[in-house]
Amino acid sequence: MFENLDLSDRGVFLTATTLYGLAAALGLYGILRPKPYPRIGVLPLVAVAFLIQTLALNLRGTVVGGCPLGNPYEVSQFIAWSAALLYFIVGPACRLRLLGFFTAASAATLGLIAALLPAWDYPYTTGRFGGEPWIELHAALAIFSYGVLAILALVSAMFLLQQHGLKHKRHQGIYALLPSVQQLDTIASRLLLTGTICLSAALIFGALFWFENPDRVPVFKLSMTGIVGFGYLLVLLLRLRQQLVTRRHAYATILLFILALLSLWPVQSARHPGSPQAQPDLQQNP
């Protein structure tokens, strides 16, 4: 779609990251000033950043000949993109005005880390999924579920913040702008269900591929994704049985998401033991 444009995808990614950063700064300014939180401002900036990030992913996808999920840099960008997409669905539906600020701040942080670590964007063999539609679906679903789980972690952080304010009798500033603890808890439980379903579906598609090609899937990657998937299933089960609720539920979802993020690096390393120097530059494989 944008193949004729003379653009560097890293430059476009950086533009999107800058815009996310600006949206986060605007949101922070809205929280800190005594006047009411601005209804407009953060949303349009996140929307523009999201569109630019979509363009960047499209540019990278065109070059690699598939969904750009081949290295941690691309995965980070895809997670930030998924979280922003989810924000447009969850934010207005649940009237979570501060979610825009949190999403923008997370996307900016993720984008900045990815930009500051050039080693993450190592070359890999393009068309790596070998034209396997199920694996493409597995990867896309897995990363989309990470977006859902990222929003879940943000909602959980908002819950903990609001609960801290209520318990410590704080009521000014950010506490006055956050949604109610009950609303945040309800949204968190719905996001957990959605995220776990998406992640489980991704794992099922991945498992089907693994059954047919056991030698092509590293055991370490399988174990890590299995642990993360099992973790979310366990939290969901405990939540449905009302054994893990409110604060402990929030902590569990945040910790699990950190684990999920941390697992990305070893998963990528397992897939590319020789990276970054082992594979030909992806720019040479249009």
Partner: peptide
């Protein structure tokens, strides 16, 4: 009443 809204919505 404001606190109740922060807890329950």
């Amino acid at each position: 009443a404001d606190l109740a809204k922060r807890i329950f919505g």
